[in-house]
Amino acid sequence: MVIAIDGLSLGAIYALIALGYTMVYGIAKMLNFAHGDVIMVGAYMIYTLCTLTWTTGSLPIWAGALIAFVVSIVVCTLLGMVNEKVAYKPLRGASPLAALITAIGVSYLLQGIAQLIWGAEQRSISILDRLGTVRVGTVAIRWSSIITVVCGAILMIGLTLFVKKTRTGRAMLAVSEDKGAAQMMGINVNKIVSVTFAIGSGLATFAALFYLPTTAISPTLGSMPGIKAFAAAVIGGIGSIPGAVVGGILLGVVEVVCNSFEATASYTTAIEFALLIIILLVRPIGLLGKKRRVKV
C-alpha cells in the first residue's frame, strides 16, 4: 500500500515533467534538455520565497507557502517562455542538432546562474512533508504522497481537457500534426509554441513542489528527474500526452518497487534504463506513440 502510493506519487512527478518534454517535442519538434533545470529553478524559488515569507511575514505558514508557490509558478512560466524566445526561436528551421546543443547549453547556463545566486551547498525545506502522515489501518501514508497523486491526477486530467476541448488546445494538436496546414488555418505558430513552453514550465514547478519532500536542493537537482522524465516520455511515445503519463507512472512505480527490495535497491536506475531499452527494442515508437501516416 505504501509502496503503491509512493510509486504513484513519484510516477506523477515524472509524468508532470515528461509532459513538458513531450508537448514541446510534439509542437516545436525539439528536445528541450533544459526542461529539468526549470524544476531546479522552481525548487530554489519556492525555497527562497517560503523562507522569506516565513521569517518576515506574520502570515500563517500555509499562506506563506501558497504565495511562494504561486509566485514561483509565474516566474518559471516566464522563464520557460523567455528561454524559448531567446534561445530556441532563432534556431527554428535550423538543424535539430543546433537546437539540441543549445538546449544543453541553456541547461548548464541555468545551473551556473543558480550556483552563483544560491551557492553550491545543499539546502532543504519542508513544506508538504510538514503535514506528516495519515494512518490507514496499520500503515502510515505520507500526506505529501497523497497530495502529489491527487493534484497530479487533477493536473493531467485538466491538461487533457484543455488540449481536447479548447481553441488553443486544438491549435496545439494541429501544429503538432502539420505546422504548415495549421498556419493555413490562421494559427500563429509562434504563439502556440510559447504557450506550450509556458504550460510545460508551469507543470515543472508543480513537480518541483512535489519533489521537495524527498530531495535536497542543489544546482543539479533537475538533472536526474529531468533525464528520468525524458526516458518516461520516450517509453510512453514522445509527442503523446497520455504516453507521458503512462511512461511517468510506470517509471515511478518501478523505481519505488526496486528501491524497496534490498536485492535490487542499488540497481534501480540501471533497471529503469534497461526498461527503456527493452521497450524501445520491442516498440520503437514507445507504448502509446503513433506511427505517422504517410501522406498520399
Binding site: R167, R170, A174, A181
Partner: peptide, 17 residues
C-alpha cells in the same frame, strides 16, 4: 492535409480558428 488524427468536427473548428 487535413488533420488526420483529429475528428471531423475538430478539423472544421480549426478552419474557423
Amino acid at each position: 492535409r487535413i488533420f488526420q488524427e483529429l475528428s471531423v468536427y475538430d478539423n472544421l473548428m480549426l478552419g474557423a480558428y
